[in-house]
Amino acid sequence: MGDDDHELLEELPELADLVLAIVDQIPEGRVVTYGDIAAVAGSGPRQVGSVMSGYGSMVAWWRVLRADGRPPQGHEDEAIAHYREEDTPMRNGRVDLRRARFPLDEVEGVRPA
């Protein structure tokens, strides 16, 4: 993230700041679900979705997806292009969560709620 993004983060609600910090640490080719983030952030998947809807453009938003491996709704084509570029494991048009899921216990500064 650039300096301008860090300045904006100072103005974000606490949950948004936490969610974006988590997403920012997901490596290329790996993904998490809204529920994965919610479990460590102490919120619900819908709240994580709201954060991503409002602020996701600040991070690699395509690395956060639904529990069934489908990319974010309305952004499928762009997300799939990112998955291909990053060699994210896919199967039948969806991300293969078994192979691509990133364990959030490896994320710095985040403890499971």
Rank of each mutant, 00 (worst) to 15 (best):
E14M: 08
R111Q: 08
L104G: 01
L12I: 07
R30W: 08
R30Y: 13
A100K: 00
D3C: 06
R91G: 03
I37M: 06
A38G: 10
E14R: 10
S57G: 14
W61E: 08
E11R: 15
A16D: 14
A38K: 03
P89Q: 05
I26T: 00
V64Y: 01
G29Q: 07
N92P: 02
L97A: 10
L97G: 09
V31R: 00
E78D: 13
Y34P: 04
I80Y: 02
S53L: 10
A67R: 11
D96S: 08
M52F: 03
R84P: 02
G56R: 00
H6K: 15
L15V: 04
D24M: 05
D17L: 12
P71G: 11
E85D: 14
R30K: 15
G54L: 12
R30I: 07
G54V: 00
W61F: 12
G44E: 10
A81I: 08
D4F: 12
D36T: 11
L8F: 07
T33S: 08
R94N: 10
F102Y: 15
V64S: 03
D105H: 14
P13Q: 12
V59K: 02
A39S: 14
D17C: 10
L8I: 08
S57Q: 12
P13Y: 09
G56P: 01
T88V: 11
M52R: 02
G29L: 05
S53Q: 14
D5L: 12
V48T: 09
E11A: 12
Y34Q: 03
A60S: 15
G56S: 06
E78V: 11
G42Q: 01
V31H: 00
S50G: 15
P27T: 09
D96H: 10
E28A: 14
G2F: 09
S43R: 05
P27N: 02
R46P: 02
A41V: 13
V31F: 00
P103N: 09
L97P: 07
A81V: 13
L97R: 06
Q25R: 10
E86C: 03
M52S: 05
L12C: 08
S53N: 14
L65Y: 09
S53T: 12
D3N: 09
D87S: 15
G29M: 06
I80C: 04
G2A: 09
V32K: 03
G2P: 03
T88Y: 04
V31A: 02
V110C: 06
R63K: 14
D24E: 11
G42C: 01
E76S: 12
V95W: 01
G93I: 12
S43W: 06
D24R: 12
P45H: 09
D105W: 11
P45L: 02
D17M: 09
E14H: 09
R91N: 07
E78H: 11
E108H: 07
P103M: 07
P13C: 13
G35Y: 08
L12V: 06
E7I: 08
A113F: 05
A21E: 13
G44T: 15
D36S: 07
P112H: 02
E106P: 00
R98D: 15
S53P: 02
M58W: 06
Q47R: 13
I37Y: 05
E86L: 05
H6D: 10
V95I: 05
L15F: 03
Q73E: 13
R66S: 13
D105N: 11
S53F: 12
V64M: 00
A60G: 10
E76H: 09
R30E: 14
S43D: 06
A38T: 08
E10D: 13
A39P: 07
G2S: 14
S43A: 15
